[in-house]
Amino acid sequence: MTKPVPVFDGHNDFLLRLLHAPERREELWLKGTEEGQLDLPRMKAGGFAGGFFAIWVPTPEAVGGTVDLGALDRAMNNPPFAMPLPAEVPYEQALPVAMAEVGHLLWMERTGTLSICRSVADIRAAMAAGRIAAILHMEGAEAIGTDLDALHVWHAVGLRSLGPVWSRPTAFAHGVPFAFPSSPDTGDGLTGAGKDLVRECNRLKIMLDLSHLNEKGFDDIAAISDAPLVATHSNAHAVTPSSRNLTDRQLAMIRESRGMVGLNYAVGFLRPDGLGAAFEGWDPVLRHLDHLIGQLGEDHVGLGSDFDGATMPADLRDVAGLPRLLDALRAYGFGEELVEKIAHRNWLAVLGRVWGE
């Protein structure tokens, strides 16, 4: 049997599953179940070599209630829609939740099956040893205070990638709501603290993730940052006009910075009609990849699944289906060199540029 091409992935929410079921983490990670979309056995079967493991803080009831996922699903199956999102989560409430999630990732490393990577050399070493190469990523900077002291603590723990927002606001920036059809131009840009955060991330060589930022926040980071512009899990607005997708103007700015976009598998950001229902076949995936490659070039497009955080296409219901995705790219006419670039080589190259290696 041919060994699968290694896949390095731009985004997953597996740590959230462990947060909700800490007593089951050995089963959920090491043994694997039919639940969710990720676990170690299915990663090995699918050729998942590593990626960005996100810390994400659910909204406590005290600050506006949890996101009503049922209402979101109903809205996404009846576009047009524009879903309001909860209020900002205070630092004091976010920090213990984020600490619990990174604790799970550190436990995963102690099992010997995963390495938290701080450099491209670390990633290559983990892949060569057969361990999952994990980048500690923060999706929304709620667990960082505006004095930025906590940013340095998180960096010492291993944080190497940061999205200033999930879609709700933070002290640093404003995100985009879940809306279709919608421009990403939905509100104000970075706050003063957000601009300081960008400069400090540049100094520490922490990658800034533009996914979930609104258009003004995107433009502010582009104006301030000296690093390549990266969106870890976003798609093309020209194909699917969701607020979460990137316009051609934004893609041109990413290309000019020698940055990167990771294709999001979430069906609502792939389907041209914005529906949140799973689809069969690969046409929406291929349409987005065609557009992204046309706008960015072959060296600046990768994969950013959103596994364990979204509804997946029917033919890619979990990580074990990655070889089918790569076979679909080959059948579409992508040569093996381009398949390998999309699968992992482009991610390692852009991380080298961001981290100064």
Rank of each mutant, 00 (worst) to 15 (best):
Met1His: 11
Pro79His: 05
Arg199Thr: 15
Gly262Val: 11
Asp318Ile: 05
Gly274Phe: 05
Glu337Ser: 11
Glu256Ala: 15
Arg249Leu: 08
Gly217Asp: 06
Ala238Phe: 01
Leu326Tyr: 04
Pro181Gln: 04
Gly32Leu: 11
Leu69Asn: 12
Leu329Pro: 11
Met99Thr: 12
His288Met: 06
Val285Ile: 15
Ile221Ser: 07
Leu325Arg: 01
Leu208Gln: 04
Thr66Ala: 13
Asp273Cys: 03
Ala236Arg: 00
Pro184Cys: 10
Glu88His: 06
Met76Pro: 07
Ala129Arg: 15
His300Met: 14
Gly64Cys: 07
Gly145Asn: 12
Met108Trp: 04
Thr247Glu: 01
Ala125Trp: 07
Ala129Phe: 06
Trp282Arg: 01
Leu69Lys: 10
Glu256Pro: 00
Ala252Ser: 11
Pro184Gln: 09
Phe307Lys: 02
Pro84Gln: 14
Gly302Arg: 01
Val267Lys: 00
Ala98His: 06
Ala252Pro: 00
Arg271Ala: 03
Ala328Pro: 13
Thr111Cys: 10
Gln250Leu: 02
Glu23Asp: 15
Ala100Arg: 15
Arg25Cys: 12
Pro22Gly: 11
Pro164Met: 00
Phe307Asn: 05
Phe279Leu: 05
Arg168Gly: 00
Leu348Cys: 07
Ala156Glu: 14
Leu40Tyr: 14
Phe178Trp: 06
Glu34Asn: 13
Arg110Ile: 04
Leu251Thr: 11
Leu329Tyr: 13
Thr146Leu: 04
Met43His: 00
Glu142Cys: 12
Glu23Gly: 13
Ile144Leu: 05
Ala314Met: 05
Gly304Cys: 04
Ile135Gly: 03
Tyr265Lys: 01
Val67Asp: 04
Ala143Asn: 09
Glu142Gly: 11
Gly163Ala: 13
Asn77Tyr: 00
Ala277Tyr: 00
Arg330Glu: 15
Ser167Gly: 12
Glu340Thr: 08
Glu27Met: 12
Asp290His: 05
Thr33Val: 09
Gly281Ala: 02
Asn264Thr: 14
His174Leu: 09
Arg255Thr: 06
Ser242Gly: 08
Asp273Lys: 01
Leu208Glu: 06
Val301Met: 00
Val63Met: 05
Ala238Thr: 14
Phe218His: 04
Asp13Gly: 10
Ile254Met: 01
Leu270Ala: 02
Asp306Trp: 02
Ile224Ala: 02
Pro4Glu: 03
Glu26Cys: 08
Trp154Gly: 07
Gly268His: 09
Pro323Tyr: 10
